[in-house]
Simulated scan of single mutants.
Amino acid sequence: MTTATATASSGASSGLESGTPRRSVVGKIVDRVGGGAVQVVMVVLGLFWLVPTLGLLVVSMRTTQVNNAEGWWTVFTKPAELTLQNYANLLGSGFTASFWNTVAITVPTTVLVIGIAAMAAYAFAWMDFPGRDVSFLVVVGLLIVPIQIALIPIASFYGSTGIFGSIPGVVLFHVAFGLPFAIFLLRNFFVGIPASLLEAARMDGASEWKIFMSVVFPLGKPAIASLGIFQFLWVWNDMLIALVFANTGNQPMTKYLQSQMRQFGSNVDILSSGAFMSLIIPLVLFFAFQRYFVQGMMAGSVK
């Protein structure tokens, strides 16, 4: 009797020590069915979210006459209606120049914002200088300044300096209004880097520039990469700044497509194919670096 009691007690204690309660068969079935149902719902939502993109692709590969006569979903029964002639016509127009104008605006803006913001964020996070906290509060305050109130003053300034309507003028405007958020994001991430790493580098005789390039910059790659994605997408899809500060010769894709809508109204073949061409690079960028979006949104939120 004593032996049986001891055995039961040891079995109960071992079960408590393991910390993993045994689940019934019904509980296991519920877990599996629930997980599968969630996955099915997520897949359905993802496919539903891609329906407009699929419709845009189909419309861009059919003639205007077919698009006016039928819905895009009829392509599943009439695949022979698909053609690449719309894209050939698009690339033979002014769209190609506007595409490279978009690249010439977006790439320098993204590089400048990342470079300037990373150095400023390191200074705000780990360097002690007079007025550091006040300067950072000013940067944070600039986050609430709307772009619209700066359009007329900056346009007047650009006109007096002779850069109005040029690509450098558009780039400078995007850089100026992209820096406050970039500095705020990177500074919050850099503060979370262990101070012992920086102190060890200083004890080894490393300069501030060496510490920034060898310690802080590599450790900050997740936040820097996510910032680059955000900034790239914002500038790539911008139309307001392009409408105000870019002339016809330097117009990006967004302004080019807007001008096509104004001139032709129902020019669906140009608008649909141009819209899908402008959508390709952001989609590729998102799917290639989507893991950085979550890390970037969480940067500095947990210390």
Rank of each mutant, 00 (worst) to 15 (best):
A206P: 02
G11Q: 14
G11T: 12
D128T: 08
V175D: 01
F157S: 09
V38M: 11
G249P: 03
G36W: 12
M261I: 10
Q251W: 01
I183V: 15
V58F: 10
N188W: 00
G265Q: 14
A176T: 15
I270D: 01
F48G: 10
T7R: 15
P79Q: 08
S13V: 14
V216T: 13
L185Y: 01
T83K: 09
G19T: 13
L179S: 04
V41L: 14
V25Q: 13
D128L: 01
M261Y: 13
F232E: 02
N68V: 08
P130L: 01
G159C: 03
F95R: 04
N86L: 14
F232N: 02
I29W: 12
F164G: 00
V302L: 11
L219C: 07
N89G: 13
S273N: 07
F124W: 03
G36K: 07
N86Y: 14
V244F: 10
A206Q: 07
I152A: 08
F217C: 12
A288K: 01
R187F: 03
M42L: 02
P108Q: 07
A118K: 00
I183D: 03
D133N: 15
A155S: 11
W209P: 02
G36Q: 11
S135E: 03
L179T: 05
S9W: 07
I280E: 03
T53E: 07
P21G: 04
F230S: 00
L54C: 12
A299D: 00
V26C: 03
L283S: 05
V294K: 05
L197P: 02
A80I: 09
L90V: 11
I152W: 05
S166V: 01
N237M: 04
K28G: 06
L84M: 14
M261C: 03
W209L: 15
D238S: 09
M261P: 02
H174A: 08
A4I: 14
W49Y: 13
S135V: 06
V244A: 08
F48E: 06
T77M: 07
F173M: 14
M61R: 10
V139Q: 00
G192C: 09
T3I: 13
